[in-house]
């Protein structure tokens, strides 16, 4: 029970912050990071939609294997993968477990397996692509796909402001700690600590909102001065900004290989389908 107390006093915000920073600003040097972001997004969309169209387990297994290979090549952080697996397994686990109460049998598990496979393929596709993509390039690719300028700006602005905002919140939160008082009793399940922590976390947003409002005003004024709103209505500026996005041989090759792999998988799948046997009730 002392754990929460320990956690609260031991929580080293600096360490968490650096972890966050590493994820956000670490180097992105894998194969996927070098693709034209537009190609990467198209590739992703392909794998986000296709799994929904197949119920043939062979095809899904094929796609899954392909994804796993790419994931291995992309050097994804084990933590992220662990979280993904954990999430998928527990989710399916709950459903199967609950299904047993309603007279379910192993068919439920089999059905769920197909479903979970679909979700895994899609999740891996997004992890492979997006954990390796520079947010700047991502936002430019979106801009190319006619996503409104403000949204694309938002991505790179968030990328810029994240550390500042974290610092600010941390400072305000510490202000509360340095002037507040920690509950003396912990209560059942340490609820007093949890309550204290939650209330502080929420209250800290009051100054945070006001301070951020002040900062935002300067930012938007500066944007005005830097011709941002002017550029928004200027197609030439957009063209110029995006002119660096070029598809290279590498991209074509990548899409080509993906195409071949997909055709092979689907062909094999239709020849040797693994179907779920459906029990008629």
């Amino acid at each position: 029970m002392n754990r929460i107390r320990q956690w609260l006093s031991k929580i080293n915000v600096e360490t968490i912050k650096i972890e966050l920073m590493n994820t956000a600003y670490g180097e992105r040097t894998t194969l996927m990071a070098k693709l034209d972001p537009r190609v990467a997004i198209i590739w992703y969309l392909l794998f986000a939609i296709l799994p929904w169209l197949f119920w043939n387990n062979t095809i899904l297994i094929g796609m899954l294997v392909y994804m796993v290979i790419l994931t291995a090549l992309s050097r994804i952080s084990p933590l992220i993968l662990f979280l993904l697996c954990f999430g998928l397994v527990t989710e399916a686990g709950y459903v199967i477990f609950t299904a047993l109460f309603f007279g379910g049998d192993l068919t439920a598990a089999a059905a769920l397996l197909t479903f979970t496979m679909k979700l895994t393929i899609i999740s891996l596709a997004s992890i492979v692509i997006f954990t390796n993509m520079d947010p700047e390039r991502f936002s430019d690719a979106l801009l190319r796909f006619k996503v409104p300028e403000t949204f694309c700006f938002g991505i790179s602005y968030g990328y810029r402001m994240l550390p500042i905002l974290i610092d600010e919140y941390q400072n305000i939160f510490n202000s509360f700690r340095l002037r507040g008082r920690f509950p003396e009793k912990k209560g059942v399940l340490a609820w007093r600590y949890v309550y204290h922590f939650c209330v502080t976390a929420v209250k800290a947003f009051y100054p945070m909102i006001l301070n951020t409002a002040k900062r935002t005003r300067t930012t938007v004024e500066a944007l005005e001065v830097k011709g941002f709103t002017y550029g928004m209505h200027n197609p030439e500026a957009k063209e110029l900004k995006l002119s660096y996005l070029k598809t290279t041989k590498k991209d074509v090759l990548f899409l080509g290989i993906t195409g071949v792999v997909l055709i092979a998988i689907i062909y094999t799948g239709t020849l040797y389908p693994i179907e779920r046997t459906i029990h008629q009730l």
Binding site: S156, Y157, R160, R215, T218, T219, A222, V225
Partner: peptide, 15 residues
């Protein structure tokens, strides 16, 4: 006319 703000930190909008 260019303007450098006192709160120049908020003026920098790119990563």
């Amino acid at each position: 006319v260019g303007y450098v703000y006192q709160d120049f930190e908020s003026q920098l909008v790119r990563p």
